[in-house]
């Protein structure tokens, strides 16, 4: 059966690192740069560029603070980011369901 799949496939989440970042921010109120680096096992530069990419799309926002003397950069998902990711999720789920029929 070929029909219109509900939800939208979002290019912003095509990259697996960005997909993972967004998955984490869907279930964590905020997450900091170093914790991202550890869980995703990526280099600083790589991570920073993906985060900037999502920031430019206004899917996440950045909050720079200090933990003692160390700079701490926290990220959280914006409402627009959550909607976009949810829509991406819906698309994937509907695609699977359609293929089953």
């Amino acid at each position: 059966m070929i029909g219109k799949v509900e939800g939208t496939y979002n290019k912003a989440f095509e990259n697996v690192i960005r997909l993972r970042i967004m998955s984490i921010l869907m279930v964590n109120e905020q997450y900091d740069f170093n914790s991202f680096k550890e869980i995703l096992e990526v280099t600083d530069g790589n991570l920073a560029s993906h985060l900037r990419n999502l920031e430019n799309a206004e899917y996440i926002f950045v909050q720079k603070t200090f933990a003692g003397r160390k700079p701490l950069t926290n990220y959280s998902a914006t409402p627009a980011g959550k909607r976009a990711f949810q829509s991406h999720l819906d698309f994937l789920e509907n695609l699977i369901n359609q293929n089953k029929v």
Partner: peptide, 14 residues
């Protein structure tokens, strides 16, 4: 695979 990836990340991060 994509959904499994998302689910595993959500679990591991929380």
């Amino acid at each position: 695979q994509e959904l499994a990836e998302i689910k595993s990340m959500m679990e591991r991060s929380t």
